[in-house]
Amino acid sequence: MQRRLITTSASETYELGRRMGGNLEPGDILALFGELGSGKTCFTQGLCAGLGIPRKRVISPTYAFVHEYEGRLPVLHLDLYRIDNLEDALDLDVMEYLSRGEGGIVVIEWADRIMPLLDEDTIQVIFNVVTSRKREILVSGREGALDRLVPGEHARG
């Protein structure tokens, strides 16, 4: 199942994240895909805002690899930009982070590095740059998760 959304500004991308964040449940794992500047961190800030975590606390963890936040649910925010392959991800104990997130939320930026570790329960969010401000955002996962996270946002186009 996949839903296609269009945002026309960074604040709309943030707002989409905030709405989804309000409906996240323990154990949700979100894998984000998209090039630099496509909106992944902006979306994650919105997602965390929806969980009651202040926006300024949420920064791209590229250099720290992982950030942890405490909101309505605990959030593990991983950024695998500097990870070249699955072996390097395993060295950083990604498996442990994925299982530790069971009671909370795991958000993974640059999740393409660890495709073999993502199962069918993972919510995949793909960010495509259309114009400098416009983004096509494809959300896929199980139907129940999509109904919960993007209610009423039916496939357009």
Binding site: L86, E87, L90, D91, P116
Partner: peptide, 12 residues
């Protein structure tokens, strides 16, 4: 003894 490479191969 991580067995990292066998695990990565197995996952792939």
């Amino acid at each position: 003894l991580y067995l990292r490479d066998p695990l990565a191969r197995a996952l792939g």
